[in-house]
Design a protein around this nucleic acid. Structure first.
Lengths: 205, 205
DNA sequence: ATAATAATTTAATGATCGTTAAAGAATTTG
DNA sequence: CAAATTCTTTAACGATCATTAAATTATTAT
């Protein structure tokens, strides 16, 4: 049985909120990356001692994956909102603009946990990199499917390449993440988004 | 006096070629990033023991900076070739296409040392991140200047924004680097380049 | 030859890494 | 109450981190 947020009915109850400390750990990973976030950093970020962390989450890698899961749950609505837009240009616009919002929000560290985490590859964390790359791939597929629908619906030309369009968006998205991490501001990034969308092959507008 | 490639005339001569081991270290950093590249990795990559490395390069950080310098010297010709193109579209095309070539070359690790190195930020390597971000900024400026010239020369409209154009290229460049690191192939990336350039605001063509 | 110098080798340093054993504290069950 | 269970705390584990001291080796200068 996997660990849940509910403490067992017997024994000493935990005195921290699981979701709350996941969020704290998430921000630590987001700031420093997987390798850059030591257990000492996690301890102070989460306000817990190592054995409590291990008791609740297994080890550092599974804590990281738990954080990624939480991160995905939080960002999924943005993707669903994007693919729910009425045409492909609005899909792309919605994706990139909420990405910029997400990457430059006051409440969050700069950049994107998934994209930037996949940039690192210490030998010890190759499995982390592949894990994150897989997530990015699944995310791309969501947009490929959406653009195939756009071709059927006629808001993209018949000869449009859904895979290319989706990959293009992901490349811009990734680039924005690195640019945000390098300290560029939200207005600057939004200008780039609008330029990146000015070549979109719409049929209607 | 800073260390040079020439061994002092007196004392035991070094038995390794400085430039050669810089190149070996460079590839190690390129593969694993600054933090991910331990001294053990460097020792085996360079075929040297730690004290020889320290003797020749100071410490890990200054070895890294030496590698970056070498990397810059090797990539500078590509940028100079790009800004030497006759108009801004060709400048952009040359930049992105040689970037893809560079990031997916058989001889090199995937991605871009500068861009991806700046993605990480362990507390210990914040200075590294800023160092790399500065390099990227200087690189951007090169293209800003070039596009200002393009406006004067008339191959960009008078109302074009050179800073935006340069930043757009850098964002795409950074995105391509992450995409390459995630395993995407050269043909895929070149298709994205051509899409990324299809919105270029040329006056002539 | 001897002295001086510098690179290499071996082996170790203290710090920090992720992880865990052992003991103490808090709760439910019988 | 006592027993059982589970979390927290303290303190440590071996491994690895970047770095260096000391001894050895190879070369030039005298």
């Amino acid at each position: 049985m996997p660990p849940t947020n509910k403490t067992s009915t017997v024994g000493r109850p935990r005195k921290f909120d699981r979701d709350k400390v996941i969020n704290l750990a998430l921000k630590a990973f987001w700031m420093h990356g997987y390798d850059g976030t030591s257990m000492r950093i996690l301890e102070s970020a989460m306000g817990l001692k190592a054995p409590s962390i291990y008791g609740a989450f297994g080890n550092k890698e599974s804590l990281f994956k738990t954080c990624i899961e939480s991160y995905n749950n939080k960002t999924r609505p943005f993707h669903l909102k994007a693919v729910d837009q009425p045409n492909s240009l609005l899909v792309a616009k919605c994706l990139l603009e909420s990405a910029v919002e997400h990457m430059t929000s006051e409440d969050n560290p700069d950049g994107c946990l998934i994209f930037l985490g996949a940039a690192v590859s210490s030998p010890s964390s190759d499995s982390i990199r592949h894990y994150l790359s897989d997530i990015a791939s699944r995310c791309t597929l969501l947009y490929v499917d959406r653009f195939e629908r756009s071709i059927e619906e006629g808001d993209l030309p018949k000869n449009a390449d859904p895979v290319l369009l989706a990959n293009y968006l992901i490349v811009v998205d990734r680039g924005l993440a690195l640019q945000a991490k390098a300290g560029h501001t939200k207005p600057d990034l939004l200008k780039i988004v609008s330029m990146a969308l000015s070549n979109w092959p719409c049929c209607d507008r």
